[in-house]
Simulated assay, not measured.
Amino acid sequence: MSFSPASPEASSASHPLAPYGWDEGWEAEFTPYAAQGLLPGRVVRVDRGQCDVVTPGGTVRADTEFVVPRDPLKVVCTGDWVAVDPGGDPRYVRTLLPRRTAFVRSTSSKRSEGQILAANVDHAIIAVPLAVELDLGRIERFLALAWESGAQPLVVLTKADLVPDATGLSYLVDDVETTAPGVQVLAVSAATGEGVDVLSAVVSGSTSVLLGISGAGKSTLANALLGEDVMEVQATREVDGKGRHTTTTRNLLVLPGGGVLIDTPGLRGVGLWDAGQGVGQVFAEIEELAEECRFHDCAHGSEPGCAVLAALEDGSLPERRLESYRKLLRENQRIVAKTDARLRAEIRRDWRLKGAEGRAAMEAKRGRIR
């Protein structure tokens, strides 16, 4: 299909920012700011109140003073599309364009603040090292945040060359696929090149963010996708397979096959942040079973007619999956309750009700004993 030079599609495709993801949608969003004489740009790095922004004329350093909100989720982030001053020293970011997606985690389990890690992402690549034992619970946690962000998750099992045989590798891939319904799982080795071409094809032409713990091989994988050693790489410890934070900032880099990649520092903690829908998508089979329970508000504890417990008893639902599901739901509820007064009140009422039922049961038991 061809477009005339005057068409919006042709205009956006030939735009200097097209390699960074500029399209007719962003062009339409930017129209009012173009009328003000501002320049469009994409944030490729943020550092202490300033950011590097790639614009039609090249990369500029800009101050974020005019877009410092009270909400920590609205701060300038790598991957954001912005409007910047056409000149001046210093230059300023004047506004953020509305985000299409945002990957957010909780900064701490004891605080009710979220931290945005990347914006306007199409694929969330979760790097999981095969140099150490798989932590399926951590994978489920990453997946919940990825689904909640609006991006398409993708699990990449790195360092596949360290698995001694093909059969063992196949079992590991099967385990993760069971843990990640609806998600593509790729075994990749940056050392041998295994799977790198497949991953490159999947993320081509889109914005991808690379996530994982320290030592997951993110920087090595980024270099393999970029086709050159752009990111510094450090060896992991042999004792536990962990590594130091080679990447210290979130950087947006253009991929040779088209699209861009946001590399991120290793994450020690991955706290949920209002990720109820994401948790439900990770545990889709449990959510589907819950629809068959006798009671619509079934807690899957000891209620009669519980389809979830029935699946647990017949072995079709692994106990580990159910426990992980319960754990993430509880954690997410606590986080949401910190910022939602109505939900806090509901939780307190539930606690009081359960407490009263427990006391009544104890009193009845004492009466029988007497």
Rank of each mutant, 00 (worst) to 15 (best):
G79V: 08
V230P: 05
G266Y: 09
Q36A: 15
M1D: 10
G367K: 10
P32T: 01
F295Q: 04
D229P: 07
G168E: 14
F3M: 00
G315A: 08
A310S: 14
S7H: 00
V132M: 08
T179L: 02
D122Y: 08
R94E: 15
F103E: 05
I126F: 04
R237G: 11
A146E: 11
T264Y: 08
H123F: 04
L253K: 08
G193I: 09
V84N: 02
P69C: 13
G193A: 07
L130S: 05
E65Q: 05
L329K: 15
D80W: 04
D297S: 09
L353A: 14
D229S: 12
V196L: 00
V270Q: 06
V53S: 02
G87C: 05
R61I: 13
M362P: 02
L17W: 00
L289M: 08
T247P: 13
I347Q: 06
A345D: 12
R321V: 07
E140R: 15
P90V: 07
S324I: 05
C298S: 06
L328A: 04
G241C: 09
D174M: 05
E291I: 06
G227C: 01
S206P: 05
G114A: 09
V43D: 01
S170A: 15
V185Y: 01
A364Q: 15
M362C: 05
D297I: 09
E303N: 11
V282L: 07
N120H: 07
G241F: 03
R45V: 09
